[in-house]
Design a protein around this nucleic acid. Structure first.
Length: 724
DNA sequence: CCGCCGGTACC
DNA sequence: GGTACCG
DNA sequence: GCGG
């Protein structure tokens, strides 16, 4: 996602990943701004890429880094012509300016140097930027004291400008007869409000609802008859828009689904967790090989949908998801304590070399306390603060320095502390008390509490960061590469495809580009299950004794999954192993059409431990043909030796923060934990800690319980291991 | 002032 | 050896 | 950016 969210990262219900701008970035922008000013008394701060370039973005996309204009001059100029203007009105201005410049040398140059068609020429786009773009008149007056442009994400302006750059037209009102596409990065509620509609089904079928990155999703396709032509990516807003999947296609609108069908889908999305409370079905609970696969997660049949919905609530499908997730989180308390007592001493541990000092009761690691009945995003009393800090964190994530990396690390901890804090933070002292919140963050928290916003977000939101975030949404592209590409002159995904600045893509990146939208879209849990079951079936045909498990966020019980993680191993009591299985499985899955693209192939696929990354699609459903459009999904396979399955389960179940905490604790106790097992006596080179001077002895690896117990970490069900 | 997880695949 | 990725 |  990374769009993103990632990051991640950026979470479940929102469905947006890293590359997506958080809504509610609020900056005030002068029309001719060389500066972005923030409300209050803050002095204006120069932005790296002056917004003045936006009306001529097509020029900016070619230009060398511009020199900064003198700040004072720009400021006074901006002040003189201060008039209120909405982003859409601003967009109109951009349009006018663009049209005026269309025949200038800029335009010609642009066309010559970057042969990108004006592929949005026939499109009339209604752009939903977020809540603030359609603020009421009253709110508007309140908010717009500083700049002529209303509170609006800089990213939105970039997008609007890009629409014009591509020849598109932005509609300021939603006229179904006029509008050809709805571009939105907001959730359904906001989108519907902006459209002036009551329910999703009121959106005419012929109007695709697409995510903003669609604007830059155009790619060249080679056509036999017509030669090269441009094709737009297609996309959907949210997994819950699933009934509108095909409306996202730019080509054929589909006949309307019946309402009943929509409802059915929503129901299936909110099934309960596999790891039901008190469920003895924890995959790894029964240690040792047995005929009844101790590893395989039980897919308990769907319990009755406990959620009622009023049929006329347009947002029912979203709220159902949200509620289900919240309820699922509430299940925790109680079971956690039961499980702690399962600590029976294991004989085989004693005889293996433990570190000299019996591990003391080390405490206070993140992994030590099972997830509390955590407030869902909705009911956290500090939610506004969490949102703003998250927004700032995501901006830092798009930077490339090590410093920023650790800042992000810090923010995740501070945000988590804040989220678990049941009381509203109102004072600096309260903020400082939180573990993970220092002076800097505490001050930021207070600024948010008192003013409702964070000025820092404003001046961290620069054009380069906004664009880098888009680039990092490509699989195989991190902040480093994204910045290199930006420096080379790339400003849009189409620039990258066109090779602007001589950028070259790796094989995986080409695929990442091709399926940018797909890869950055989370899938409903149900779809992950569908795919997994198809794969499991094929795997067991290859070898009936295989243990095939779905891990990752699915095992943690999430209602949407960013990818599918499948663990494969096999007991060796009959003298055989799973060596060679992965190769066969991959071949079989390719020919059955489930696996579609490879992203990375293990160096030795027949090794007992191998990792595979690729893309897949769900199996066809009744009545579908191979022409049915199916979203590409990220899929990973991991094979491990049978004895390592416990460590592998921990690793592959995550979440990542939980894992890091576990590993950190292991380190402090003189152990080392990786996906193969828990080791004692590992000696690392003092110069480079990644270099192991001595491999140490493996002391636990076969079951999760064993490892948890040695580390003194209470047993936690997969869905309790959520720390991020 | 320094450490902040550990490993594999890819280039 | 750096970069990106996985949890 | 936080904590030891």
């Amino acid at each position: 996602m990374s769009v993103a969210d990632p990051s991640h990262t950026i979470d479940e219900i929102s469905g947006f990943t890293d590359a997506s701008p958080r809504k509610s970035t609020t900056v005030h922008i002068n029309v001719d701004a060389r500066t972005i000013t923030t409300p209050g008394n803050a002095p204006p701060v120069a932005v790296k890429k002056p917004l003045a370039n936006l009306p001529r973005l097509k020029v900016a996309s070619l230009a060398k880094p511009q020199e900064k204009k003198p700040l004072a001059k720009a400021k006074s100029k901006g002040k003189k012509t201060r008039e209120l203007i909405t982003p859409v009105e601003y967009a109109k201005k951009l349009h006018a300016q663009y049209t005026a410049n269309a025949d200038t040398e800029d335009g010609v140059d642009n066309h010559k140097l970057t042969p990108r068609a004006q592929y949005l020429a026939d499109f009339k786009i209604f752009f939903v930027g977020g809540d603030s773009m359609y603020a009421s008149e009253a709110t508007r007056n309140k908010m717009s004291i500083v700049g002529p442009l209303l509170s609006c994400s800089l990213v939105h302006v970039v997008i609007l400008a890009q629409i014009y750059q591509r020849g598109g037209t932005v509609c300021s009102t939603f006229d179904p007869a006029e509008v050809t596409h709805i571009v939105t990065d907001a959730d359904a509620r906001v989108t519907l409000r902006a459209l002036g509609l009551k329910r999703l089904s009121d959106i005419p079928e012929h109007i695709p609802t697409v995510k903003w990155s669609w604007v830059n999703s155009a790619k060249w396709v080679q056509d036999k008859d017509q030669g090269r032509r441009i094709e737009m990516g297609w996309t959907v807003l949210h997994a819950a828009f699933a009934s509108r999947l095909d409306a996202g296609s730019t080509i054929l609108p589909k006949k309307a689904d019946s309402k009943g069908k929509e409802k059915e889908r929503a129901d299936s999305d909110v099934q309960l967790l596999d790891a039901a409370p008190g469920g003895s079905a924890s995959p790894s609970h029964a240690p040792g090989p047995s005929s009844t696969s101790p590893l395989r997660p039980r897919h308990s049949d769907r319990t009755d949908d406990p959620l009622s919905r009023s049929a006329d609530d347009p947002l029912a499908e979203f709220e159902a998801l949200a509620r289900a997730e919240r309820d699922a989180e509430k299940l925790d308390l109680g079971i956690a304590e039961d499980k702690v007592s399962v600590n029976a001493p294991a004989p085989q541990i004693a005889k293996l070399g433990e570190p000299s000092s019996r591990p003391r009761r080390l405490r206070g690691f993140l992994c030590d306390d099972p997830k509390k009945s955590q407030m869902s995003s909705q009911e956290c009393v500090n939610q506004d603060v969490v949102d703003k800090l998250t927004e700032l964190m995501e901006l830092h994530r798009a930077k490339q320095s090590d410093e920023d990396r650790w800042r992000v690390f810090s923010y995740t901890k501070a945000i988590r502390a804040l989220r678990n804090q049941p009381h509203r933070i109102t004072s600096l002292e309260q903020a400082r008390k939180l573990h993970g919140v220092g002076d800097k963050t505490a001050n930021k928290i207070m600024e948010i509490v008192q003013t409702g916003q964070l000025r820092r977000i404003g001046y961290e939101t620069t054009e380069d960061i906004a664009i880098v975030k888009v680039f990092t949404g490509i699989y195989g592209v991190g902040a480093r590469t994204a910045h290199q590409w930006y420096a080379a002159g790339c400003r849009t995904l189409a620039d990258i495809t066109a090779g602007v600045g001589g950028v070259k893509l790796s094989d995986a990146q080409v695929i990442g580009m091709q399926f940018y939208e797909d890869i950055n879209t989370r899938m409903p849990r149900e779809e992950a299950k569908e795919i997994y079951e198809a794969i499991e079936k094929i795997a067991l045909l290859i070898d009936a004794k295989l243990y095939v498990n779905i891990m990752g966020s699915y095992r943690r019980g999430k209602l949407t999954c960013g990818d599918i993680d499948i663990l494969i191993t096999r007991p060796t009591d009959d003298g055989l192993s799973h060596s060679g299985v992965l190769t066969k499985l991959l071949t079989s899955l390719h020919s059955s059409g489930i696996l579609t693209e490879d992203l990375s192939i293990p160096s030795d696929p027949d090794a007992l431990d191998a990792v595979y990354h690729g893309l897949c699609v769900r199996p066809l459903r009744d009545g579908e043909t191979s022409h049915t459009k199916r979203i590409r999904r990220r899929i990973d396979f991991l094979t491990v030796p049978w004895e390592s399955r416990g460590a592998a389960l921990i690793y592959y179940t995550g979440d990542d923060i939980f894992n890091r905490s576990l590993r950190l604790k292991a380190n402090k106790m003189g152990f080392s934990l990786n996906q193969k097992g828990l080791y004692a006596g590992v000696v690392r080179s003092p110069e480079d800690r990644t270099v192991k001077l001595s491999p140490g002895n493996i002391i636990a690896s076969a079951t999760e319980e064993e490892i948890f117990r040695i580390l003194g970490v209470p047993w936690q069900e997969p869905h309790e291991r959520v720390r991020g």
